[in-house]
Amino acid sequence: MKRNQTITLRDNRIIGYSIYGDENGIPLFLFHGTPGSRIWFLENDELAFKLGICLIAIDRPGYGLSDEKKEREIIDFVEDLKEFSKKLNINHFTILGVSGGAAYAAACAYALPNRVKAVAMVSSATPFSNGIPPRNMTFKNRIVFLLSKYFPLFLHYLNYLEKRILDKNPNKYKRLLQKNIVHLSDWDKEMLTDKHVVETNIVHIKEAYRRGVKEVVYETQLLTKPWGFDFKKIKVPIDLYHGEDDTLSPISEVRKMVSEFSFCKPYFIPKAGHFLMENKNVWEKVLKNLKIHYEN
């Protein structure tokens, strides 16, 4: 495991990343959610190592160790990944994008059909109609998107308070995380009773805020806007995994999105919520399917 790695791009921006699993294995890029960071595991991932998969988790601009890229759009991350993968001497790869990160995974599939072998979109965000989050999204999450669109300074303040608690009193953050879960599915509530899941989440999110909260607010705004590419023109295989009880990204909106893809195989998981990667069975299925895509 290599946790705090960096690469400098042509424009002198730094991109941070971590490596898990088999360092000499099949390359699989991990795109974190919004917010998120390259810290996906506190220890090495034994399953990835066993399957011969090299997990490369990247900090997007403004998160963790990565420098900000001003006025970026979702599709702009393609150029970062092209240069990043070239510097690692990786020509072909698969991508796993979680939640907000799934938008970037789809963008790379669209723009790099000759290099991306397959993409897994997990608990994916969905494009909004007219920039407004769907009414069947849980109220708390809906408010966050609306604040990012109409009152970004207030959302900046709320995220700053969250960062402050994380920095000064992680135990208080843990208590708040496990207390304020009424809006989540039973699946997600159960996940947040797992000590290891909570400890990993705290380190993951604390690292996301390393450079402040500006990028969290900006990227939340980005997800309310058009993503900048046509799903129907994606020729790369897309595996989509989504919990049917996901309250943060409603399954009804995901089904609409799936219908727009030309090559998408959906896996809708009964009674599952948003936190799918924390489930060992789902994690194993995602990795094994991506390995099959890469080798075919």
Results as ranks from 00 to 15, higher is better:
residue 25 G to Q: 08
residue 98 V to C: 04
residue 176 L to N: 15
residue 186 D to M: 14
residue 162 E to T: 13
residue 166 L to Y: 09
residue 41 F to G: 04
residue 181 I to R: 12
residue 80 D to Q: 11
residue 242 H to K: 03
residue 63 Y to N: 00
residue 207 E to T: 11
residue 214 K to S: 08
residue 42 L to S: 10
residue 283 W to C: 05
residue 269 I to N: 03
residue 44 N to Y: 11
residue 189 K to Q: 12
residue 242 H to N: 11
residue 182 V to S: 15
residue 15 I to S: 00
residue 276 L to S: 07
residue 255 R to A: 06
residue 84 F to S: 02
residue 259 S to G: 02
residue 159 N to S: 09
residue 80 D to Y: 07
residue 294 Y to D: 05
residue 156 H to Q: 14
residue 146 L to H: 01
residue 71 E to D: 14
residue 275 F to L: 14
residue 279 N to L: 12
residue 220 T to W: 10
residue 83 E to D: 05
residue 275 F to D: 11
residue 145 F to K: 01
residue 172 K to M: 15
residue 79 E to I: 00
residue 153 L to C: 01
residue 288 K to N: 13
residue 278 E to F: 15
residue 171 N to P: 05
residue 134 P to G: 13
residue 218 Y to E: 12
residue 40 W to V: 00
residue 222 L to G: 02
residue 287 L to C: 03
residue 218 Y to R: 14
residue 75 I to Q: 01
residue 65 L to H: 03
residue 225 K to E: 14
residue 240 L to V: 07
residue 167 D to F: 07
residue 49 F to P: 00
residue 178 Q to K: 14
residue 99 S to I: 01
residue 3 R to W: 00
residue 146 L to K: 13
residue 57 A to Q: 04
residue 266 P to A: 04
residue 121 M to P: 01
residue 79 E to T: 02
residue 20 Y to H: 09
residue 86 K to Y: 07
residue 70 K to D: 09
residue 129 S to K: 13
residue 275 F to M: 15
residue 48 A to M: 06
residue 61 P to G: 04
residue 149 K to W: 04
residue 246 D to N: 06
residue 217 V to K: 02
residue 272 A to D: 06
residue 154 F to K: 14
residue 35 P to A: 05
residue 116 V to G: 05
residue 286 V to W: 00
residue 31 F to Y: 14
residue 62 G to E: 05
residue 82 K to Q: 13
residue 209 Y to S: 02
residue 75 I to H: 04
residue 59 D to I: 01
residue 94 T to E: 06
residue 58 I to T: 05
residue 132 I to T: 09
residue 161 L to S: 12
residue 43 E to T: 13
residue 60 R to P: 05
residue 18 S to I: 07
residue 264 C to Q: 08
residue 88 L to V: 10
residue 172 K to F: 13
residue 97 G to S: 08
residue 274 H to E: 08
residue 261 F to H: 09
residue 71 E to W: 03
residue 205 I to P: 02
residue 262 S to C: 06
residue 208 A to F: 06
residue 74 I to K: 00
residue 67 D to K: 02
residue 131 G to H: 08
residue 285 K to D: 15
residue 145 F to N: 11
residue 190 E to M: 13
residue 211 R to T: 00
residue 197 V to I: 15
residue 254 V to W: 09
residue 224 T to H: 06
residue 292 I to D: 14
residue 181 I to G: 12
residue 76 D to L: 07
residue 54 C to A: 11
residue 46 E to T: 13
residue 265 K to L: 11
residue 43 E to Q: 15
residue 187 W to N: 08
residue 96 L to R: 02
residue 131 G to C: 08
residue 16 G to V: 02
residue 125 A to L: 04
residue 27 P to E: 06
residue 135 R to P: 00
residue 217 V to Y: 07
residue 281 N to S: 15
residue 8 T to F: 13
residue 33 G to Q: 10
residue 286 V to N: 01
residue 90 I to C: 03
residue 87 K to S: 05
residue 266 P to H: 02
residue 150 Y to Q: 07
residue 83 E to Q: 09
residue 51 L to T: 03
residue 100 G to H: 08
residue 137 M to R: 11
residue 90 I to F: 08
residue 101 G to E: 08
residue 234 I to F: 10
residue 100 G to A: 06
residue 199 E to V: 11
residue 106 A to R: 00
residue 161 L to P: 05
residue 232 K to H: 12
residue 59 D to G: 00
residue 199 E to K: 15
residue 134 P to W: 10
residue 133 P to I: 06
residue 218 Y to P: 00
residue 149 K to D: 09
residue 49 F to L: 10
residue 81 L to E: 01
residue 236 V to H: 04
residue 129 S to T: 12
